[in-house]
Amino acid sequence: MDIVFIVISILTILSSIMVIRSSKLVHSALYLAGTLIGTAGLFLLLQAEFLAWVQVLVYVGAVVTLILFTIMLTRKGEEE
């Protein structure tokens, strides 16, 4: 259990760092998805299964998609 927790949390934190660090917006968006999924994993560990699914559905399914759309809509040359 602890190991699972540690792995998930490290992944979550790392990907959240990468949201900021990565130079490409699309990558950032994907890392964000990673963080959110990681959080969903933590929810599972906290026995909040329903919420975990909602998290994946709403965040990853809707928000990240929205972000990707926005990135494409506002792309003009390459954003740094």
């Binding site: 917006l25 950032s28 963080t35 959110l36 929810f43 906290l46 972000i67 926005t70 990135i71």
Partner: peptide
């Protein structure tokens, strides 16, 4: 980038959610 800032806001809300749970 405005988009990245919005992503960061999502991070914040997410962390709060984690707290709540």
């Amino acid at each position: 980038s405005g988009i990245k800032i919005l992503m960061c806001i999502e991070l914040l809300l997410n962390s709060a959610n984690l707290n709540l749970v």
